[in-house]
Design a binder for these strands. Structure first.
Lengths: 183, 183
DNA sequence: CCCGCATGAGACATCGACGCCTCGCATGGT
DNA sequence: ACCATGCGAGGCGTCGATGTCTCATGCGGG
């Protein structure tokens, strides 16, 4: 009874985030279980990735719910969003790059739902006049993904401090790099 | 004499950009040569990736030179930079993700030089008062990489138009998503 | 016109990852 | 105390990718 599915998935996520090509044996060893047991519970690497995908979607949707994207100003919602989603950006980045390989297969509907929520948020910001309209909501969504990936990678590499994650991403995404308070 | 190293590298770059896990046989077929010939000129996948790395660095440094990063305002320099670097963003993104796998090995000095040039550009912008100083130059550099990757991927997926690439990235990086001309 | 050389096609061996199986053991429930 | 269930360890066969080799061919240069 020493098998803890949750723990195995977390460990696998941590490992695969850093080593996307990690072997099933390495995943098993990292989780402290044998290769055979890993295979008993996940029939092949695809199954494992699918399970991680479910986990990532669930965490992401939980973060989106916690961020209450439809409340308050869109700007504040983005700020809450980035803060809430930070813990799962590593997993998200891994799944994002993994998805490219499945280009033939059907993409999980969960991503579509998440995409739609983010798109709706940025559209809402545009309609309320908070966000500029010469950048499409679709692009801002993609840019958010890119910045989350770059941010989590930079933190992992130690190039920026973890505590600055939210501030860096939100400020750059919303305000850009140009100094605006110049008289 | 039908072997054209340049053409093979270009084709391999195009293919691997979309299919990072493409087989050596697929690379050879895409380039219109036999697997044997590919192996005669590149001793293994590592060699091929190294050659692509050299190509990517060379193209990137050429783009940086063409952008004349030290001339004019930093803002204009960034604009030129993104425009010049656009043709090789696909290759850059591939190499960026490939580098994660080589985490043990020594990273090519070319990337360090490029990093340093970009860092210098953003520092210059901060010192001239164009760019905000609460976002570190290192982070802005990483963010640029992330946005270039997200942009080239979004273009490849057809989610945004190729012609909008420069505008999207530059405007978001410099100006952010917030509308600033609100009265 | 003939020779040399690079290429293409295919075969072959190797290697690593994977899936599956069996056996021995521990732990927990009855 | 006994039994069943689940795990760890190790082995076995398969498969795909890769590197190498041979041989025939086609092309150009001498």
């Amino acid at each position: 009874m020493s098998f803890d599915r949750e723990h195995v998935l977390r460990t696998a996520a941590d490992l695969l985030t850093r080593q996307a090509t990690a072997t099933m044996a390495e995943v098993a060893r990292a989780a402290g279980i044998s290769r055979a047991t890993l295979n008993r519970h996940f029939a092949g690497r695809d199954d494992l990735v699918r399970a991680l995908e479910e986990l990532g979607i669930a965490e992401c949707e939980a973060a989106l719910a916690a961020a209450r994207l439809t409340e308050g100003t869109a700007t504040d919602a983005v700020r809450r969003l980035v803060r809430e989603v930070q813990p799962c950006t590593g997993l998200l980045t891994f799944l994002y790059s993994e998805n490219q390989l499945f280009e033939g297969g059907t993409q999980n509907a969960g991503w579509t739902r998440i995409d739609e929520q983010l798109n709706a948020l940025f559209r809402r910001g545009q309609e309320s006049g908070e966000f500029r309209i010469d950048l499409s909501a679709v692009w801002i969504t993609e840019a958010l993904y890119g910045l989350l990936g770059a941010g989590s990678w930079a933190v992992l590499e130690g190039r920026v401090a973890r505590q600055d994650f939210t501030h860096m991403i939100v400020e750059l995404l919303l305000g850009g790099a140009t100094r605006k308070d110049t008289p």
